[in-house]
Computed example of a mutant assay.
Amino acid sequence: MAARAIYTVLVCAAALLLALASPSAGLSLDTVREFLTREEDTIVFSLIERARYPLNRPAYDPIHLGDGDGAGPGRRLNASFAELFIRESEAVQSKAGRYQSLQEIPFFAYRVPFTLAPPFNFTRELYPAAAFVNLNDAIWSMYFNELLPVLANNGDDGNYAVTVDSDLACLQVLSRRINYGRYVAEVKFRGDQQTYTSLIKAKDRDALMKLLTSEAQEDVVKRRVEKKAIVFGQSITSDGPIETSVSNSSQANFKVDPSVVYKLYDQWVIPLTKQVEVEYLLHRLD
């Protein structure tokens, strides 16, 4: 009975997920831009949620997982509470059908179980031989080693489960946003096949990176996400309209530091996305 109840919950969750996920209306520059712009909102809100909690370092150290004598399951498995939490969460979400969509890539793919969700015919826009490209390992390392220390304040409030749950939300949206570079590369390839084919055959990474880069557009994106962090990160009152001027941001108390969001896009999101694009293109003719 318990197994049947669990299965029922998973199938219902899968049905809800699939109902919310509509098939692509067709890959184009417009649909790509719309997707990436919408992901900015999700990223900023996810960062705001994680910034609510202190750093909570014990959640990321295997020695702290267990019975307090250093001999717990984390030490034996060489895994932290955060890693085990994310592994198990991905396993449940896989059973619910999350990873049927190529936009979603698990961090622990080798541990993802067979899905219990009903199959769904997601639109397949990616070139099959290049669809495997992803930078989840780099995203994981960047998030825990570089972003998290500047996002969260030092401290330990013991709320490890909710803290790591918010980490998972950040990781998933960053993975989806950065690895969406595969779709960006595909639509750009379709728009200029002759030029890209020549560079791909020559395996000219530098030329591909240059062709994919628009510094003016990148600056627009970085400034926009910084402003979103300012707008979304303010405490709203009934005293009047909120101030959204970037020039006044240093005097305000934001839920997430807008400069951290700018840095995230400047140093990691945009460069890693372009790296995904290049790797995808190098396999586009396989």
Rank of each mutant, 00 (worst) to 15 (best):
A152C: 11
L212K: 01
F108A: 08
L16Q: 12
P23G: 13
Y262E: 02
A13K: 09
R87L: 12
V260M: 00
I63E: 15
Y60I: 05
D165I: 03
S238C: 04
Y280H: 12
I178E: 05
A138G: 00
C170Y: 01
A51C: 11
A117G: 09
L20K: 07
T195D: 07
P73M: 11
P62F: 05
I178F: 04
P128C: 14
D69M: 04
N253W: 03
V246H: 01
L36A: 07
V220Q: 04
Q193M: 12
F108K: 09
K228N: 08
D257V: 00
F45E: 12
Y183E: 07
R224G: 01
L147T: 02
S101W: 04
P113Q: 09
F114N: 03
T37D: 15
A131F: 05
E40S: 14
D266C: 00
L55Q: 05
V278S: 05
Y180C: 06
L102D: 09
F114C: 04
S249H: 05
G72Y: 07
W268P: 00
S89L: 07
G233C: 07
S250F: 07
D266E: 14
F232M: 11
R33E: 12
L77S: 11
V246A: 11
I178Y: 03
N154P: 07
P241G: 06
T197A: 11
V187K: 09
T8S: 13
T163P: 02
V221Y: 01
I230P: 05
D257N: 15
L20C: 11
Q217L: 10
G155N: 07
E34P: 00
F254A: 03
S235D: 14
S89Q: 02
D157A: 02
D61E: 13
A216L: 06
H283K: 15
A207S: 15
V164Y: 05
V246C: 01
N179L: 07
D266L: 03
T213Y: 06
L116S: 09
S250I: 03
G74V: 10
Q194G: 00
R224V: 01
V256R: 00
Y196I: 07
R52W: 05
T237K: 13
D156Y: 13
T37W: 08
A109N: 08
R75Q: 06
S24N: 10
L282N: 10
Q100H: 06
N145H: 12
V256L: 11
S80C: 05
T8H: 08
V173T: 11
A96M: 15
V184G: 01
P271S: 10
N121Y: 05
I86K: 02
S247M: 02
E90G: 08
E215S: 10
V246Y: 00
I48W: 09
Q217S: 14
E40A: 05
A19G: 12
L10M: 06
M1T: 10
